[in-house]
Design a protein around this nucleic acid. Structure first.
Lengths: 194, 194
DNA sequence: CTCTACCCTTAACCTAGATTAAGAAATCAT
DNA sequence: ATGATTTCTTAATCTAGGTTAAGGGTAGAG
């Protein structure tokens, strides 16, 4: 069944009883996505909490000059959503786009709340999941303040080895908060200093 | 009883039963703090999850050049901790310092886990609390990438009206990721353009 | 297979914000 | 109250990274 991948992932935190697994029913919906397809478009409500089974996604905002800024990537076994919009059901300012063709499992607010209510331990799992993301984000804020673009690029390579050879540099630049041109300069520099 | 302030705050999310409140016992410990006192020192484990009853705190990291970077403020009815260090019980790289004399309630990992276990809905409350902080942090990352220092300063004033007249500009500058000198320039500019 | 759209690089020039230094103003502890 | 410590401001100079422009490379849809 399509839920299998999510359940397996959740059970890597805490095992679930058979009766609990049964509650998932068809609340998670399988959705294949094409390359470049957007599963969230700015201006619309973020209707789904998305689990990535296969593929690679980016969440980004667009500034007043039309420049895009990546705030998160998500690949296999990762979750992605504009949490603010998802919970308030108000329009999102963000976009989520597939960088590759892939497959996701999606759940609506009502259905996720149903699961939270009937499987209390899910609250704990999702608390842990978001704590992990929070820590990541906090480190990123700190790093953006205290490191040069070169240092940030190098630690991106270290921290996300499964991502960097899968993403175009232009996407990495956007994540680091620099222009592709400057990233190119940085890369050249690193090259010549080794 | 000293827990009163925390319980009242938690009940603003979901009411607790009398038997649940009883479980809090003396697990939260009252601690008065002096101005400049650190309740977390980099290199040590973050032993407590802290609820601010009164006062104002900053959490900050120090870079290799010795510059401090504020990553979060917390005033009345807010929570503060290095979540990563608290959960792993590994040394923190961050500091938490009182900007004013105040009063906090603190709980240790073991005791918080006890409450999570025996009052399942606490997981949900703390999930919501951290989700709110996550959203805040995400907006900050996006803003740092897409706005000038002036725009960021102005939205800080809007977003934290209860904080800006309480904090020295030098602390705000550190939060915005700029030098106090440049903030001074920015403020002068705003002044003359109105 | 190929052509079109994207991606990467280089280089010249430009700007937001950093650095340094120094004086004035505000605040704190005693 | 008062000296000591912080905080704020100004101004000159400097630099990380942005902007613009242009050529060559690569990969994906048909």
């Amino acid at each position: 069944m399509s839920n299998q991948a999510v359940i397996q992932h959740l059970e890597s935190f805490i095992p679930l009883k058979g009766s609990e697994k049964a509650l998932f029913g068809d609340r998670f919906v399988t959705r294949p996505v094409k390359r470049r397809e957007k599963i969230l478009v700015a201006g619309e409500v973020c209707k789904y909490y998305t689990f990535v089974v296969e593929g690679c996604f980016r969440m980004f905002g667009v500034d007043d000059k039309g420049f895009e800024h990546n705030i998160q990537f998500a690949a296999e076994k990762d979750w992605i959503a504009d949490i603010g919009s998802f919970h308030t059901q108000k329009p999102s300012q963000l976009n989520i786009e597939a960088l590759e063709a892939g497959l996701v499992l999606q759940i609506k607010q009502q259905d996720l709340y149903f699961l939270y209510k009937n499987i209390p331990k899910l609250n704990m799992i999702f608390k842990v999941l978001i704590e992990l993301k929070y820590i990541e984000l906090q480190n990123r804020v700190l790093q953006n303040f205290s490191s040069t673009a070169e240092q940030r690029y190098l630690s991106f390579l270290e921290q996300y080895p499964h991502l960097f050879n899968r993403l175009p540099n232009t996407q990495i630049a956007s994540y680091l908060g620099i222009t592709p041109e400057f990233l190119s300069k940085v890369r050249k520099n690193i090259q010549s200093n080794r």
